[in-house]
Nucleic acid binder design. Structure first.
Length: 255
DNA sequence: ATGGTGGTCCAACCA
């Protein structure tokens, strides 16, 4: 089973890229973030035409997540219990006996800002929700745009970036709290090329210089991680015309 | 370099 995540930065603009990519990569499950459209206008038929079911939790202009799958998704959850939030950033479904938690973690903007505080509160609430989901589902995957680079090798210039947004101690501690539940960052379970990143700012030729961060992650429960056979980043779509600023991240499982 | 580019939607916000 092949599971992937991709922040598309507007599904309206990137629909042709997503359709092209699924036709060749053939993931069983694809978690999309920043679809930036209302659930009511989600292009469902475009995906059924290429053999995918789809479920979305969207809003106008910002945020929004959707999950594509070969098999139909069941038992959707779109809100973190006890965390009142109009922003559409989570979509939990069960597909092929795997609990799939698709996330668009808040960006945080800058340290000390209201958005930063919101990010940390959101992650704390998520941690409590995931503790419950972990107990209920042996095979659970938490994937998406975490807006956190786990460690220095996930940053193109860790000295220059320092402890700025995406790399601050509080953000990394919040991610560590998720890993302490038993979740495994499967990308790091395999040998990887130096300077492996999933996001490159549009500005200042960052992709051309491979000045990126690895902030798109696939975390698996222990039983699922034990079945992971490969994980990698597909940089190719980042080089396409009018690309998303993120690349797809993939994990393969012997399921 | 407190900039640069890109999406949403046409002013200003978000990333």
């Amino acid at each position: 089973m092949k599971i992937a995540t991709w922040n598309v930065n507007s599904l309206t603009v990137r629909l042709p890229h997503v359709l092209d990519w699924v036709r060749t990569a053939e993931p069983d499950i694809l978690a999309l973030q920043e679809i930036k459209l209302l659930t009511e206008v989600f292009p469902l038929e475009s995906f059924t035409e290429v053999g995918y079911h789809a479920i979305a939790s969207g809003q106008k202009t910002y945020n929004g997540v959707a999950t594509l799958s070969r098999e139909i998704a069941a038992d959707p959850v779109t809100d973190i219990p006890g965390f009142d939030d109009p922003q559409r950033r989570m979509l939990v479904t069960t597909i092929d006996n795997v609990r799939v938690v698709n996330l668009y973690v808040p960006n945080g903007q800058r340290l000390g800002s209201l958005k930063y505080e919101y990010k940390l509160n959101w992650l704390a609430a998520l941690r409590n929700f995931l503790a419950v989901e972990m107990a209920l589902h042996e095979h659970l995957v938490v994937l998406g745009d975490f807006n956190i680079a786990p460690a220095d090798p996930d940053v193109y210039d860790p000295v220059k970036w320092g402890e700025d947004i995406h790399c601050s101690p509080a953000e990394r501690a919040a991610l560590k709290e998720l890993l302490k539940l038993g979740l495994v960052d499967v990308f790091r379970e395999f040998e990887q090329p130096e300077k492996s990143f999933s996001w490159w700012d549009y500005r200042a030729g960052r992709f051309r210089r491979n000045a990126g961060l690895r902030i798109d992650l696939i975390l698996a429960s222990p039983a699922l991680a034990a079945r992971c056979t490969a994980s990698y980043i597909d940089r190719e779509p980042r080089g396409w015309e009018r690309p998303s600023d993120h690349a797809p991240v993939i994990a393969e499982f012997g399921l």
